[in-house]
Protein backbone atom coordinates (compact mmCIF):
# COMPACT_ATOMS: atom_id res chain seq x y z
CA UNK A 1 0.00 0.00 0.00
CA UNK A 2 1.30 3.39 -0.95
CA UNK A 3 1.61 6.27 1.44
CA UNK A 4 -0.88 8.41 -0.43
CA UNK A 5 -3.57 6.84 -2.56
CA UNK A 6 -6.05 8.93 -4.44
CA UNK A 7 -8.84 7.48 -6.56
CA UNK A 8 -11.24 9.47 -8.73
CA UNK A 9 -11.12 12.38 -6.33
CA UNK A 10 -13.45 15.22 -7.32
CA UNK A 11 -14.61 18.44 -5.68
CA UNK A 12 -17.17 20.85 -6.98
CA UNK A 13 -19.07 23.62 -5.33
CA UNK A 14 -21.76 26.04 -6.29
CA UNK A 15 -21.21 29.73 -6.00
CA UNK A 16 -23.86 32.39 -5.78
CA UNK A 17 -23.67 34.48 -8.89
CA UNK A 18 -23.92 38.17 -8.23
CA UNK A 19 -25.31 40.26 -11.01
CA UNK A 20 -24.60 43.85 -11.83
CA UNK A 21 -27.17 46.59 -11.61
CA UNK A 22 -29.96 47.67 -9.36
CA UNK A 23 -32.81 45.62 -10.80
CA UNK A 24 -30.76 42.47 -10.82
CA UNK A 25 -29.67 42.88 -7.23
CA UNK A 26 -33.29 43.34 -6.13
CA UNK A 27 -34.34 40.25 -8.06
CA UNK A 28 -31.41 38.48 -6.48
CA UNK A 29 -33.19 38.71 -3.15
CA UNK A 30 -35.87 36.34 -4.33
CA UNK A 31 -34.19 33.97 -6.70
CA UNK A 32 -30.54 33.30 -6.76
CA UNK A 33 -28.64 31.72 -9.57
CA UNK A 34 -25.77 29.46 -8.80
CA UNK A 35 -22.83 28.38 -10.85
CA UNK A 36 -21.13 25.07 -10.26
CA UNK A 37 -17.39 25.21 -10.14
CA UNK A 38 -15.57 21.96 -10.64
CA UNK A 39 -12.29 22.55 -8.90
CA UNK A 40 -11.05 18.97 -9.12
CA UNK A 41 -12.54 16.61 -11.68
CA UNK A 42 -11.41 13.15 -10.84
CA UNK A 43 -7.79 12.66 -9.89
CA UNK A 44 -5.94 9.36 -9.55
CA UNK A 45 -2.55 9.45 -7.93
CA UNK A 46 -0.30 7.40 -5.71
CA UNK A 47 2.70 8.70 -3.84
CA UNK A 48 5.27 6.51 -2.10
CA UNK A 49 6.92 7.29 1.21
CA UNK A 50 9.85 9.67 0.90
CA UNK A 51 8.86 11.17 -2.44
CA UNK A 52 9.08 14.88 -3.15
CA UNK A 53 6.33 15.62 -5.62
CA UNK A 54 5.60 18.93 -7.30
CA UNK A 55 2.14 19.99 -8.45
CA UNK A 56 2.31 22.34 -11.36
CA UNK A 57 -0.54 24.10 -12.98
CA UNK A 58 -2.03 27.46 -13.86
CA UNK A 59 -4.07 29.44 -11.35
CA UNK A 60 -7.35 27.78 -10.49
CA UNK A 61 -6.22 24.44 -11.86
CA UNK A 62 -7.09 22.65 -8.63
CA UNK A 63 -3.67 22.25 -7.04
CA UNK A 64 -4.54 24.01 -3.82
CA UNK A 65 -7.93 22.31 -3.67
CA UNK A 66 -6.20 18.95 -3.94
CA UNK A 67 -3.87 19.81 -1.06
CA UNK A 68 -6.82 21.00 1.00
CA UNK A 69 -8.65 17.76 0.31
CA UNK A 70 -5.62 15.75 1.35
CA UNK A 71 -5.25 17.74 4.54
CA UNK A 72 -8.93 17.31 5.40
CA UNK A 73 -9.85 20.98 5.20
CA UNK A 74 -12.33 20.13 2.46
CA UNK A 75 -14.55 17.13 1.93
CA UNK A 76 -14.64 15.80 -1.64
CA UNK A 77 -17.79 15.53 -3.72
CA UNK A 78 -16.86 12.05 -4.90
CA UNK A 79 -13.86 9.79 -4.84
CA UNK A 80 -11.58 8.47 -2.14
CA UNK A 81 -8.17 9.19 -0.76
CA UNK A 82 -6.04 7.82 2.02
CA UNK A 83 -2.90 9.29 3.49
CA UNK A 84 -0.92 6.90 5.69
CA UNK A 85 -4.07 4.82 5.89
CA UNK A 86 -6.25 7.68 7.11
CA UNK A 87 -9.13 9.27 5.26
CA UNK A 88 -8.18 12.94 5.62
CA UNK A 89 -11.64 14.50 5.84
CA UNK A 90 -12.55 12.37 8.80
CA UNK A 91 -10.15 14.70 10.60
CA UNK A 92 -8.98 12.10 13.08
CA UNK A 93 -6.54 13.43 15.63
CA UNK A 94 -4.30 10.45 14.90
CA UNK A 95 -3.99 11.72 11.34
CA UNK A 96 -3.72 15.37 12.22
CA UNK A 97 -0.67 14.68 14.37
CA UNK A 98 1.17 13.17 11.43
CA UNK A 99 1.10 15.83 8.74
CA UNK A 100 1.40 19.57 8.28
CA UNK A 101 0.20 22.13 5.78
CA UNK A 102 2.04 25.34 4.98
CA UNK A 103 0.37 27.99 2.88
CA UNK A 104 2.47 30.78 1.50
CA UNK A 105 -0.45 33.16 1.32
CA UNK A 106 -1.82 32.64 4.78
CA UNK A 107 -0.24 32.81 8.15
CA UNK A 108 -1.15 30.97 11.27
CA UNK A 109 1.23 32.68 13.68
CA UNK A 110 -0.14 35.26 16.07
CA UNK A 111 0.53 38.53 14.33
CA UNK A 112 1.26 40.67 17.38
CA UNK A 113 3.28 38.14 19.33
CA UNK A 114 6.79 36.80 18.99
CA UNK A 115 6.92 33.57 16.98
CA UNK A 116 8.25 31.81 20.08
CA UNK A 117 4.83 32.23 21.73
CA UNK A 118 3.04 30.65 18.79
CA UNK A 119 5.52 27.80 18.89
CA UNK A 120 4.79 27.25 22.55
CA UNK A 121 1.11 27.05 21.68
CA UNK A 122 1.90 24.38 19.11
CA UNK A 123 3.88 22.51 21.69
CA UNK A 124 0.77 22.24 23.85
CA UNK A 125 -1.63 21.57 21.00
CA UNK A 126 0.50 18.69 19.69
CA UNK A 127 1.48 17.62 23.16
CA UNK A 128 5.18 17.70 22.38
CA UNK A 129 7.60 16.72 25.10
CA UNK A 130 9.27 19.94 26.40
CA UNK A 131 12.85 18.79 25.81
CA UNK A 132 12.03 17.35 22.43
CA UNK A 133 10.25 20.60 21.59
CA UNK A 134 13.19 22.76 22.51
CA UNK A 135 15.59 20.62 20.56
CA UNK A 136 13.47 20.64 17.42
CA UNK A 137 12.73 24.35 17.63
CA UNK A 138 16.34 25.37 18.14
CA UNK A 139 17.53 23.00 15.45
CA UNK A 140 15.07 24.34 12.89
CA UNK A 141 15.70 27.95 13.86
CA UNK A 142 19.40 27.42 13.38
CA UNK A 143 18.99 25.69 10.03
CA UNK A 144 16.83 28.56 8.82
CA UNK A 145 19.01 31.19 10.47
CA UNK A 146 16.21 32.86 12.42
CA UNK A 147 17.21 32.01 15.99
CA UNK A 148 17.76 35.67 16.90
CA UNK A 149 14.28 36.63 15.63
CA UNK A 150 12.29 34.22 17.78
CA UNK A 151 11.38 36.85 20.35
CA UNK A 152 10.39 39.55 17.89
CA UNK A 153 6.70 40.17 17.15
CA UNK A 154 5.77 38.48 13.90
CA UNK A 155 4.40 41.69 12.41
CA UNK A 156 7.90 43.17 12.50
CA UNK A 157 9.43 40.35 10.45
CA UNK A 158 10.06 40.44 6.71
CA UNK A 159 7.99 38.21 4.47
CA UNK A 160 10.85 35.75 4.08
CA UNK A 161 11.50 35.59 7.81
CA UNK A 162 7.83 35.11 8.45
CA UNK A 163 7.69 32.23 5.99
CA UNK A 164 10.60 30.57 7.77
CA UNK A 165 8.75 30.90 11.06
CA UNK A 166 5.65 29.39 9.45
CA UNK A 167 7.77 26.46 8.35
CA UNK A 168 9.17 25.95 11.83
CA UNK A 169 5.66 26.07 13.30
CA UNK A 170 4.55 23.41 10.83
CA UNK A 171 7.51 21.14 11.49
CA UNK A 172 7.63 21.27 15.29
CA UNK A 173 5.61 18.10 15.73
CA UNK A 174 7.73 16.20 13.24
CA UNK A 175 5.13 15.53 10.52
CA UNK A 176 5.69 12.55 8.25
CA UNK A 177 3.86 14.17 5.37
CA UNK A 178 4.19 17.80 4.45
CA UNK A 179 1.91 19.74 2.13
CA UNK A 180 3.41 22.98 0.89
CA UNK A 181 1.18 25.39 -0.99
CA UNK A 182 3.23 28.06 -2.75
CA UNK A 183 5.77 28.30 0.06
CA UNK A 184 7.96 30.79 -1.77
CA UNK A 185 5.30 33.07 -3.20
CA UNK A 186 6.23 36.72 -3.07
CA UNK A 187 9.73 36.09 -1.77
CA UNK A 188 12.88 37.58 -3.23
CA UNK A 189 15.41 35.35 -4.96
CA UNK A 190 17.66 34.99 -1.93
CA UNK A 191 14.84 34.04 0.40
CA UNK A 192 13.48 31.62 -2.19
CA UNK A 193 16.85 29.99 -2.45
CA UNK A 194 17.20 29.72 1.33
CA UNK A 195 13.88 28.00 1.66
CA UNK A 196 14.66 25.63 -1.21
CA UNK A 197 17.97 24.67 0.35
CA UNK A 198 16.30 24.13 3.67
CA UNK A 199 13.55 21.96 2.23
CA UNK A 200 16.00 19.86 0.30
CA UNK A 201 18.19 19.31 3.35
CA UNK A 202 15.24 18.62 5.61
CA UNK A 203 13.74 16.11 3.23
CA UNK A 204 17.03 14.28 2.86
CA UNK A 205 17.60 14.14 6.62
CA UNK A 206 14.12 13.16 7.67
CA UNK A 207 12.88 11.18 4.67
CA UNK A 208 9.51 12.92 4.92
CA UNK A 209 7.08 12.86 2.04
CA UNK A 210 6.45 16.27 0.55
CA UNK A 211 3.81 17.51 -1.87
CA UNK A 212 4.53 21.00 -3.13
CA UNK A 213 2.66 23.38 -5.36
CA UNK A 214 4.50 26.28 -6.84
CA UNK A 215 4.50 28.82 -9.59
CA UNK A 216 8.26 28.94 -9.64
CA UNK A 217 9.94 26.41 -11.89
CA UNK A 218 13.10 27.08 -9.92
CA UNK A 219 11.50 25.57 -6.84
CA UNK A 220 10.48 22.53 -8.77
CA UNK A 221 13.78 22.05 -10.57
CA UNK A 222 15.72 22.43 -7.35
CA UNK A 223 13.61 20.06 -5.33
CA UNK A 224 11.46 17.55 -7.12
CA UNK A 225 12.12 14.58 -9.31
CA UNK A 226 8.50 13.84 -9.86
CA UNK A 227 6.16 16.36 -11.36
CA UNK A 228 2.39 16.25 -11.61
CA UNK A 229 0.80 18.74 -13.95
CA UNK A 230 -2.79 19.66 -13.18
CA UNK A 231 -4.94 21.71 -15.49
CA UNK A 232 -8.68 22.24 -15.37
CA UNK A 233 -8.92 19.94 -12.38
CA UNK A 234 -7.33 16.96 -14.11
CA UNK A 235 -3.91 15.42 -14.12
CA UNK A 236 -2.43 15.78 -17.56
CA UNK A 237 1.07 14.65 -16.75
CA UNK A 238 2.71 12.59 -14.06
CA UNK A 239 6.37 11.70 -14.32
CA UNK A 240 9.89 12.99 -14.18
CA UNK A 241 10.90 16.52 -14.92
CA UNK A 242 12.85 15.43 -17.99
CA UNK A 243 9.89 13.39 -19.19
CA UNK A 244 7.99 16.63 -19.71
CA UNK A 245 10.31 17.36 -22.59
CA UNK A 246 9.62 14.03 -24.22
CA UNK A 247 5.92 14.45 -23.86
CA UNK A 248 5.39 18.11 -24.55
CA UNK A 249 8.73 19.37 -25.79
CA UNK A 250 8.06 18.51 -29.41
CA UNK A 251 10.63 21.00 -30.61
CA UNK A 252 14.38 21.32 -30.28
CA UNK A 253 16.62 24.29 -30.71
CA UNK A 254 19.68 23.96 -33.01
CA UNK A 255 22.45 26.50 -32.47
CA UNK A 256 24.97 27.00 -35.25
CA UNK A 257 28.34 28.72 -35.39
CA UNK A 258 28.97 29.42 -39.05
CA UNK A 259 32.54 29.35 -40.38
CA UNK A 260 33.94 32.37 -42.28
CA UNK A 261 30.94 34.43 -41.33
CA UNK A 262 29.14 33.19 -44.42
CA UNK A 263 25.60 33.14 -43.09
CA UNK A 264 23.32 31.02 -45.28
CA UNK A 265 20.22 32.95 -46.36
CA UNK A 266 17.83 30.04 -46.67
CA UNK A 267 17.82 28.74 -43.11
CA UNK A 268 14.07 29.14 -42.87
CA UNK A 269 13.72 26.14 -45.15
CA UNK A 270 14.78 23.87 -42.27
CA UNK A 271 12.78 25.29 -39.43
CA UNK A 272 11.70 28.40 -37.57
CA UNK A 273 14.53 30.90 -37.38
CA UNK A 274 14.75 32.22 -33.87
CA UNK A 275 17.75 34.45 -34.10
CA UNK A 276 20.50 35.37 -36.55
CA UNK A 277 23.49 37.16 -35.13
CA UNK A 278 26.40 36.37 -37.46
CA UNK A 279 28.27 34.19 -37.02
CA UNK A 280 25.61 32.58 -34.80
CA UNK A 281 22.11 31.41 -35.61
CA UNK A 282 19.31 29.60 -33.78
CA UNK A 283 16.69 27.41 -35.36
CA UNK A 284 13.66 25.68 -33.89
CA UNK A 285 13.06 22.27 -35.41
CA UNK A 286 10.68 19.42 -34.72
CA UNK A 287 12.25 16.72 -32.63
CA UNK A 288 11.80 14.00 -35.24
CA UNK A 289 13.48 16.01 -37.96
CA UNK A 290 16.57 17.03 -36.01
CA UNK A 291 18.90 14.40 -37.53
CA UNK A 292 17.67 15.04 -41.01
CA UNK A 293 18.05 18.82 -40.74
CA UNK A 294 21.47 18.58 -39.15
CA UNK A 295 22.70 16.29 -41.90
CA UNK A 296 21.43 18.62 -44.57
CA UNK A 297 22.95 21.74 -43.04
CA UNK A 298 26.29 20.15 -42.27
CA UNK A 299 26.62 18.77 -45.78
CA UNK A 300 25.79 22.09 -47.43
CA UNK A 301 27.55 24.74 -45.32
CA UNK A 302 30.76 25.19 -43.46
CA UNK A 303 29.84 24.99 -39.80
CA UNK A 304 32.35 25.40 -36.95
CA UNK A 305 30.16 24.30 -34.09
CA UNK A 306 26.70 22.95 -33.55
CA UNK A 307 24.57 22.14 -30.52
CA UNK A 308 21.08 20.81 -30.01
CA UNK A 309 19.14 21.91 -26.95
CA UNK A 310 15.73 21.62 -25.42
CA UNK A 311 13.84 24.85 -25.13
CA UNK A 312 13.61 26.17 -21.53
CA UNK A 313 11.30 24.06 -19.39
CA UNK A 314 9.34 27.07 -18.26
CA UNK A 315 8.47 27.84 -21.84
CA UNK A 316 7.24 24.32 -22.43
CA UNK A 317 5.10 24.26 -19.38
CA UNK A 318 3.64 27.66 -20.10
CA UNK A 319 2.75 26.31 -23.53
CA UNK A 320 1.18 23.19 -22.04
CA UNK A 321 -0.95 25.36 -19.80
CA UNK A 322 -2.10 27.64 -22.57
CA UNK A 323 -2.75 24.76 -25.00
CA UNK A 324 -4.83 23.07 -22.40
CA UNK A 325 -6.86 26.13 -21.72
CA UNK A 326 -7.67 26.62 -25.40
CA UNK A 327 -8.73 23.04 -25.66
CA UNK A 328 -11.21 23.33 -22.84
CA UNK A 329 -12.56 26.68 -23.97
CA UNK A 330 -13.01 25.21 -27.43
CA UNK A 331 -14.75 22.20 -26.00
CA UNK A 332 -17.39 24.11 -24.12
CA UNK A 333 -18.48 26.41 -26.93
Amino acid sequence: MSLIEITKLAKSYSVFQKKEGLGASVRGLFSRSYKTIEAVRGIDLTVEAGEFVAFLGPNGAGKTTTLKLLSGVLTPTTGTATVMGHVPWKRENAYRRRFALVMGQKNQLWWDLPAAESFRLHQHIYNIDPQEFQKTRDGLAEMLDVARLLSQPVRELSLGERMKMELIAALLHGPEVLFLDEPTIGLDVVAQHNIQTFLKQYQQDRKVTILLTSHYMKDVMALCRRVVIIAQGRIIYDGSLEGILDRFGGLKVISLLVADGQMPDDLSRYGEVLKIEPPRAKLRVERSKVTEVLAAILSRYAIDDVSVEDPPLEEIIAKVFSDNREEVVGGSS
Binding site: G72, R96, A100, K106, Y126
Partner: peptide, 14 residues
Protein backbone atom coordinates in the same frame (compact mmCIF):
# COMPACT_ATOMS: atom_id res chain seq x y z
CA UNK B 1 -11.11 34.64 4.65
CA UNK B 2 -10.44 30.92 4.80
CA UNK B 3 -8.33 31.32 7.93
CA UNK B 4 -10.26 28.43 9.41
CA UNK B 5 -8.04 26.06 7.40
CA UNK B 6 -5.24 26.07 9.93
CA UNK B 7 -7.55 25.40 12.83
CA UNK B 8 -8.99 22.38 11.06
CA UNK B 9 -5.55 20.82 10.87
CA UNK B 10 -4.86 20.78 14.57
CA UNK B 11 -5.26 17.56 16.53
CA UNK B 12 -7.59 19.23 18.98
CA UNK B 13 -11.29 20.02 18.90
CA UNK B 14 -11.93 22.77 16.37
Amino acid sequence: TGGLDFLLLKPIDT
